[in-house]
């Protein structure tokens, strides 16, 4: 029978780099990414799972990393905002956010970009309504979302 333990050694691959770390069972994935791996691009904007600033892609699935324990990510492949640019060049979506003024303070942006990335992978030609639905789990307090929707629309095929 599997052992019950208060900490666990886990192996995760984040943006192509594999890490092995001992983590307490109670540590949330977002704290692990930010505090243990120094991947501070993903943010924390709430404590109830509403804001989406911590959104990352785990094994191809968009999740909020504040509602997942780090130990649950053992063996997983994780993508975060730090992995979006290629060789230091912004990708199309990132450029579109810049061109459409889809960010102001930039705090929600990493999560917003990950949600949009997941959407565009699953549905390269989303309608405006589909874009809104896909971004519903990400709160932005600066932009009112209109420019974010435009930025995503602009890269939709």
């Amino acid at each position: 029978m599997a052992t019950v333990a208060s900490s666990k050694s886990i192996t995760v691959t984040v943006n192509g780099t594999t890490y092995e770390r001992e983590v307490p069972a109670r540590k949330l994935l977002i704290h692990f990414l930010r505090d243990d791996l120094d991947l501070t691009g993903s943010h924390i904007g709430c404590d109830t799972g509403n804001c989406g600033a911590c959104s990352v892609i785990v094994d191809g699935t968009l999740v909020k990393s504040c509602m997942m324990l780090a130990v649950q990510a053992d063996g997983a492949t994780i993508e975060t905002v730090e992995g979006l640019a290629e060789d230091g060049e912004l990708n199309e979506l990132q450029r579109s956010f810049n061109e459409h003024h889809a960010l102001q303070c930039g705090y929600c942006t990493p999560g917003m970009l990950m949600s949009a990335t997941a959407l565009l992978r699953a549905n390269p030609s989303p309608s405006e309504q589909e874009i809104r639905k896909a971004l519903q789990g990400n709160i932005c307090r600066c932009t009112g979302y209109w420019n974010i929707i435009e930025a995503v629309k602009a890269v939709a095929k």
Partner: peptide, 9 residues
């Protein structure tokens, strides 16, 4: 969170 133990059956 408070301290908690974890197991994955």
């Amino acid at each position: 969170l408070r301290e908690v133990e974890y197991v994955k059956p």
